[in-house]
Design a protein around this nucleic acid. Structure first.
Length: 562
DNA sequence: GTAGGGTTAG
C-alpha cells in the first residue's frame, strides 16, 4: 500500500503526462488498491477524469468483499444517473450479488428492469446472478422464471436453482431438478451436491434420497470437500442417523467452525447433551474459534439436558469472547430456564433482553406458565402473544390449555368459542413414515389409508399389550373436555400411533421405525412408544417439531425432558 | 477482473 501511495503521489506531482495515460495509471493503482484498502480505491475513483467501467466494477467488487451492503448499490445508482460509463455484464452481476446480500429486494427488481432494458438479459452470468438474487430472497417462482428463460444452462445455473429450492424446503423440486440436470447431460459438481443434500436435510424426511446422493459421490469419485462433508453431517443428523453423521464427521481431514457446529447442533437435536458439550470441548481443543451457531448448539443442549449452571457458564464465556448474543441465543436461555421451571428467572431474562421478544419466546414462557399452573402470569403472556399473532391457532390452544391446567373449564370453552367465531382452524397432528421409498402420511383420527383395517388390528393388539403392562393413559394430554373413556380412544388415534402401527405392520425387526411428526409428541404417546419399543423389541425414532426421540428398550434418549 | 455451496433456539 505504501508503494502504491508513492506512485500515486508521483503521478499527481508530475502532471506532464497526457490525461489518458494518467487515467490509465490511476486505474491500475485503483485495481491493486481495491484488494487492500477499499476506501482508498474509492477515493481514487473520484480523481480519475473518465473512469472506465472496469474501475467501477473493481470498486463495487471490493466493497462486496469488504462486506458493505449499501455501498455497491449506491455506486451503481451513480453510474445509471450519470449514464457514464455504461454498466456491463460484470457490473450487473456484482450489483445483483450485493442486492442479494443486503436483502435489497426492491433495488434488485430495479436492477432486473435495467438488465432487460440494457439488452444483457441473455448473458449467462447476468442470468445466474439474477437467479441467485431471487433464490436468496426465497422467491423461487421468479428464480424459476429466470431459469426457464435461460437458453443454455451450465452447472452453476442448475446448482443455484437446486440450492434455491433446498433453501425454502422444496425437497421434491430440488431432487427432481437434480435428476433433470443429469438427463440434460450436465454432470453435477460439488456445489450441486451440496444443494441436493441440503434439500434432503430439510424436514428430515428424505433419508433414502440423502443416502443415494452420498453413494453417488463415491460412485463418481467426487471430491468430498469441506462443504459437501458438512452438508452430509447435517443431513444424516437431521434425518435421525446421528451415528452416521458422526462417522462422516470423523472422516473429515479438516473441520472449520461450521463443520463443528453442525455436529454439535446434531447432537443437541438428538438430546445427546453430553456428546454435544464434549464436541464443543474438542472444538476448543482443536483451536477452532466457535461461532454464534456453535453457541446455539451448546445452549440448546443445556436447555434440553436441564443443565442450567452449565448453560450460564457458556453464556458468560460467549460474552467473554466478545460475541454479541442474538435473539436466538436469548431464546435458548429462556427455553433453558423454562424447562427447569425457573419461570421467574426466565421472565427476568426476557426483561433484560435488548430485543423485544418474538412470538416463539412468548410461547416458551406460556408453556412454562401452563406447566407450573401460573394463571395470572400466563394470561399476561398470552395477551402479548395473541396481540402479535391473532390468527395463529397454536396461541389459542396454549391459552386454553393454561385454563385446563387450573381446571377452569368455563374460560377454556370461552377461548374455544372465540377461535370458532374467528374461524381459526387448528393444525391437525400429522405423522409420516417412509416405506420402500414412499412417504405415507397419517393425520390424527384419519382412517382413510388403504391399509386402515390392518393398522387398526395391529393397534388393538398393541393397546391390549400396553394396557396389560400396567400403563395408565395420561388423559391430560387430551384437551377436549369430554369423558375419560372417550379421551382414551382419542389417544389411540394420534397420528404418530397410526404411523407406528403401519411401521409394525410393514417392517420386521431389526428395521428401525422412523417417524416424522409436525407437532410435538404428547406425554401419553411418549410413554406408550417407550413401552412399545420394549414389548416389540423395536428401535423407534420419532422426530417431532422440536427434536428427536430415540426409543430403545423402554427408554427414550430425551430422558423424558422435552 | 466475472456467476453458485455447508451450520441457527421454540
Amino acid at each position: 500500500m505504501r508503494i502504491l501511495r508513492q506512485i500515486h503521489a508521483h503521478i499527481v506531482a508530475y502532471p506532464h503526462s497526457s490525461p489518458p495515460s494518467r487515467s490509465f495509471l490511476l486505474s491500475k493503482i485503483l485495481c491493486f488498491a481495491a484488494y487492500r484498502n477499499i476506501r482508498y480505491a474509492r477515493t481514487l475513483l473520484t480523481q480519475i477524469a473518465y473512469p472506465s467501467v472496469f474501475s467501477y466494477n473493481t470498486v463495487i467488487r471490493g466493497l462486496i468483499l469488504e462486506g458493505q451492503s449499501r455501498g455497491p448499490i449506491f455506486l451503481f445508482r451513480k453510474l445509471v444517473r450519470n449514464k457514464f460509463p455504461l454498466a456491463n455484464t460484470f457490473t450487473l452481476a456484482f450489483v445483483l450479488k450485493s442486492c442479494a446480500i443486503a436483502s435489497a429486494f426492491e433495488e434488485g427488481r430495479q436492477v432486473h428492469k435495467h438488465v432487460i432494458a440494457s439488452g444483457f438479459g441473455g448473458n449467462l452470468h447476468v442470468q445466474t446472478s439474477l437467479l441467485n438474487f431471487y433464490t436468496k430472497r426465497e422467491n423461487t417462482e421468479m428464480a424459476r422464471k429466470v431459469f426457464d428463460e435461460m437458453s443454455d444452462r451450465n452447472v452453476v445455473a442448475w446448482s443455484a436453482m437446486i440450492g434455491g429450492y433446498a433453501r425454502v424446503g422444496k425437497v421434491n423440486e430440488a431432487l427432481e431438478l437434480f435428476r433433470e440436470m443429469q438427463k440434460d447431460g450436465v454432470m453435477p459438481d460439488e456445489m450441486a451436491m451440496v444443494g441436493a443434500i441440503s434439500a434432503c436435510a430439510v424436514s428430515g424426511g428424505a433419508l433414502e434420497s440423502g443416502e443415494w446422493l452420498h453413494a453417488f459421490i463415491y460412485k463418481n469419485e467426487m471430491k468430498k470437500d469441506l462443504e459437501v462433508s458438512t452438508a452430509l453431517v447435517n443431513m444424516y443428523a437431521k434425518c435421525g442417523c446421528i451415528d452416521k453423521a458422526k462417522q462422516v464427521f470423523d472422516s473429515m481431514p479438516v473441520k472449520d467452525a461450521k463443520a463443528w457446529s453442525s455436529m454439535i447442533v446434531g447432537y443437541s437435536i438428538h438430546g445427546l447433551v453430553k456428546q454435544a458439550l464434549e464436541t464443543f470441548r474438542e472444538m476448543e481443543e482443536a483451536e477452532v474459534e466457535p461461532n454464534h451457531v456453535s453457541f446455539i448448539g451448546v445452549l440448546s443442549a443445556c436447555a434440553h439436558g436441564g443443565l442450567v449452571a452449565d448453560g450460564k457458564k457458556y453464556w458468560f464465556s460467549m460474552l467473554q469472547n466478545k460475541m454479541e448474543p442474538s435473539l436466538e441465543h436469548y431464546g435458548c436461555m429462556v427455553d433453558m430456564f423454562c424447562r427447569a421451571n425457573l419461570v421467574e428467572e426466565a421472565c427476568d431474562f426476557v426483561n433484560s433482553m435488548p430485543f423485544s421478544p418474538n412470538p416463539a419466546i412468548w410461547r416458551t414462557l406460556l408453556v412454562s406458565c401452563k406447566r407450573n399452573k401460573l394463571l395470572q402470569r400466563g394470561e399476561i403472556v398470552a395477551k402479548q402473544l395473541i396481540q402479535m399473532e391473532p390468527l395463529n391457532a397454536e396461541n389459542y390452544i396454549l391459552l386454553s390449555s393454561l385454563y385446563g391446567s387450573v381446571s377452569d373449564w368455563v374460560k377454556m370453552s370461552h377461548v374455544r368459542k372465540l377461535m370458532n367465531d374467528m374461524g381459526i382452524k387448528t393444525v391437525p397432528g400429522c405423522s409420516s413414515i417412509e416405506i420402500d421409498g414412499h412417504v405415507h402420511e397419517f393425520v390424527m383420527g384419519d382412517w382413510s389409508h388403504p391399509d386402515a383395517m390392518a393398522i387398526r388390528k395391529v393397534l388393538w393388539e398393541v393397546m391390549d399389550r400396553v394396557q396389560r403392562s400396567g400403563h395408565e393413559p395420561w388423559i391430560e394430554s387430551v384437551l377436549h373436555n369430554v369423558g375419560d373413556g372417550e379421551k382414551r380412544d382419542v389417544l389411540w388415534e394420534h397420528s404418530e400411533r397410526l404411523a407406528i402401527g403401519y411401521g409394525l405392520l410393514k417392517t420386521k425387526a431389526p428395521v428401525v421405525i422412523r417417524i416424522v411428526k409436525n407437532l410435538r409428541i404428547c406425554v401419553d404417546c411418549h410413554q406408550v412408544t417407550k413401552i412399545i419399543s420394549e414389548l416389540y423389541e423395536r428401535e423407534i425414532i420419532v422426530r417431532d417439531r422440536i427434536r428427536f426421540h430415540r426409543f430403545i428398550d423402554g427408554i427414550c434418549s430425551c430422558n423424558d425432558l422435552w
